[in-house]
């Protein structure tokens, strides 16, 4: 029994690339979970998907210019968010359509650049992640980005909470609600870059939204929700990584499937909102 446990959970840690993959998975699980909670409460899930795709051309540009990935990613991420805002405000196009237009455009530009220029960027790895290829410098970048995102959320927690719950009041006491929104977009771009190798651009939205949604079903406190979300993010990332290692599966996809499983478990068993509870309630009503 213990042998099997050791074999499954401990032996992979003997490899350095696995150690780095684990650390990356933990950091990404935490930041996606924390930031994702805020995105859900601000109804920005779709925006999360958009910005994650919009990061692709930024990564390609950065590669060409020889600068750090996260600079280009933040620039194209925020530019896309601004573009979406501009279309929504200056035409009769609604926000969901504006999101659809802008993010696919940015994504297409990114693919064009990568396919045209002879770079050794592996598109497949950017899109779907390559967690086993996390290098020492990658890990450092991921940790720095993670630190920035978490620090900003802690510093501005009060303002984020108020502007998410009651944007009208936030504005009426003079909080710069638009600046807060774009700060979140920058953080989102950073988070996507940090997650590139773990889950990839296409699936990062699942890491942002699913753990947060799971936590949302289980608690009525914002701080608890954020902690739980980080917990589910890390747990999914680690279990997904083990699955990926032992069964030779794509890591990003394995992580997303695990986190979705947790979501459905919460959906059924949540003490407050769970389906089982509702069925019981209905039974009680029927009996009375």
């Amino acid at each position: 029994m213990i042998d099997i446990f050791l074999e499954i959970f401990i032996s992979p840690l003997g490899y350095q690339f696995m150690q780095r993959a684990f650390l990356a998975a933990i950091v990404v699980g935490v930041i996606c979970g924390v930031l994702g909670s805020l995105l859900i409460l601000r109804k920005l899930a779709l925006m999360g998907d958009a910005i994650s795709h919009a990061v692709l051309p930024g990564v390609a540009f950065s590669y060409i210019l020889g600068i750090n990935f996260f600079i280009g990613a933040a620039v194209t991420g925020v530019a896309t968010a601004l573009g979406i805002g501009f279309i929504t405000e200056n035409s009769k196009i609604k926000e969901d359509s504006a999101i659809g237009i802008m993010f696919s455009a940015a994504f297409a530009v990114g693919i064009l650049i990568i396919s045209k220029l002879r770079t050794n960027i592996d598109l497949f790895h950017i899109l779907f992640g390559n967690i086993l290829g996390v290098s020492r410098s990658d890990l450092r970048l991921i940790s720095i980005l993670g630190f920035i995102v978490i620090a900003l959320i802690i510093i501005f927690f009060k303002e984020l909470k108020l502007s998410s719950f009651d944007p009208i009041m936030a504005k009426s006491i003079g909080l710069p609600t638009e600046a807060i929104h774009y700060m979140l977009m920058v953080m989102l771009s950073f988070t996507v870059v940090a997650s590139l190798q773990t889950v990839g651009i296409v699936l990062v939205v699942a890491m942002l939204i699913t753990p947060g949604a799971t936590a949302y079903l289980l608690t009525e406190r914002l701080s608890t929700m954020i902690l739980l979300s980080a917990f589910f993010g890390v747990l999914s990332a680690l279990l997904g990584l083990y699955l990926s290692y032992h069964l030779n599966l794509a890591s990003g996809a394995a992580i997303v499937v695990v986190s979705t499983l947790f979501f459905f478990l919460a959906m059924v068993f949540s003490p407050q909102e769970g389906l089982i509870l509702r069925v019981k309630d209905n039974d009680c009503l029927a009996n009375n």
């Binding site: 409460l41 009060k158 719950f165 009651d166 006491i173 608690t219 406190r221 914002l222 929700m225």
Partner: peptide, 19 residues
């Protein structure tokens, strides 16, 4: 105008008046 499902307690909401 308020999202009543937001995970925030009565106390927290009133504290927002102090922000």
């Amino acid at each position: 105008e308020i999202d009543w499902k937001f995970p925030v307690s009565v106390f927290d909401v009133v504290m927002m008046g102090r922000y």
